[in-house]
Each structure stands twice: as structure tokens, then as C-alpha cells.
Write a protein that binds this DNA or RNA. Sequence first.
DNA 1: CTTTCATTTCAATATTTCTTGAAATATAAA
DNA 2: TTTATATTTCAAGAAATATTGAAATGAAAG
Lengths: 103, 103
Amino acid sequence: MHEEEAASLFQALSNADRLKVIRALVTAGPDGLNAGDIAQKVGASPSRASFHLAALSDAGIVHSERQSRSLRYTVDFARIGALLTFLMDDCCNENPQLKSCCR
Amino acid sequence: MHEEEAASLFQALSNADRLKVIRALVTAGPDGLNAGDIAQKVGASPSRASFHLAALSDAGIVHSERQSRSLRYTVDFARIGALLTFLMDDCCNENPQLKSCCR
DNA sequence: CTTTCATTTCAATATTTCTTGAAATATAAA
DNA sequence: TTTATATTTCAAGAAATATTGAAATGAAAG
């Protein structure tokens, strides 16, 4: 991952409501949640939730799939992992003190 | 760390030049670098480098210390580690797939 | 085929962040 | 004390992002 891409992923994570969205999806488990439930859980209007979901989706952090009338969102852990790897390895040169936070 | 604080740290990381600043500081080792050398290494004007350094400093990701005429900057790995811990543990509930990126 | 439901898109405005160069500040040298 | 060096601060304009509610879209039910 190059710096520009990492920067845009960090940008997608730089909002408390979007972090809440991720937490809600993680808590929900592998089946994810539909947009309406996410909006309700993070306390955002439908259009604002849609805006945040679009930001996360553009960054590849979440994916969506239509399920009847709803759109079911899931979190992409591999994508988040790739960003962590960039930060820890490429950017911070595998610094031991930083690595230790994973244990 | 709470969501608002994490979001503001991600915001500080959401710029390619600021990631370059971190990389330059990491590469330089424990003694860090002064502002002028950082500006030169990332290819930014002095005022722009100062702006980026202020953003990173406000987030607690770097610290500065005056050394004669120069300000010597160092990176705070513990602060970055705290953000990673927030993302992996609090936000993503210690997901194994995400944790595996640290190995 | 009309209505209802779930979600997104859009337009308009507000807010924040970025960028630039000039001026200000702090330190040290001559 | 004058000059040079290192860095930050400031102001102003440009660009990006956020926010809101209304309208549009897609899908299913009656």
C-alpha cells in the first residue's frame, strides 16, 4: 500500500460515527447489518448513515450486498489489516515497541 | 481511548506528507530530526512542514524539543500503539483475522 | 399497477482543512 | 548590537468535507 492510499483509508476512519459503524458491524458478526439498523445503532439519520457508509465503502473498509429491500453491510478485516501492516511495517519500520501493542 | 480521540488521531494520519514525516522520523532513529531536515526530506516548504508537524504534535504523535536554534522532533510510538490498540481491541473486538496482521 | 418500504442521491449551505508567502519570534554568531 | 539562521504564526483565498431535508431509485407487497 502506498502513502496516498493509506492516507485516504485513515481519512475514512477519521470520524467518530464511522468508527461506531465499524464497531456495530464487528459486534453484529459475520452476517453484518443492513443500512437502517446501522443508522439506528449509531444514532444518525438515514442519509447521514448512507454518507458514512459510502465513505467506508469507497475506502474498501466495508462491502454491501442487496438482500431484498435492504442493503446488508459487512466489514472487511483484511482491508483494515492491510492498513495496520502499512503503518507498522512500511511506515514505522517494524518498530518493536509498536509491534508489542498487538500482544 | 474514546472514539472522538481516535478519530482525531486518524485525521492526523490522513495525509501522505504527514505519513512521510513519520517515516522520516522513524528512519532517523531515536534522536529524531529537526524541522528543517524534515521539510527537506518530505519536500515541503518550511511553513507547510511546520503545519504538518503541528498537526502531528497536537495529536501527540510527535514531540519536539528545542536544541539551540533548531527544534528536534521525535515520534511517539506508544501513542501510535494506543491508537492501534483502540482499533484492534475496542473497535474491532480483538478480531483474530485483524490481529494476525501483526505477526 | 399502485403503494409502501429501504436506501441513496442531490443541492445548498456550513464548516473545516489546506496552501502560500510574508511577517514575527527565538536563538546564536559576528 | 547587528546580522544570520531556524522555525512558527498569521491572513487570506482555495479546496475538500460535512450536514440537512427533499427528491429519486430500487424492490417487494397488496
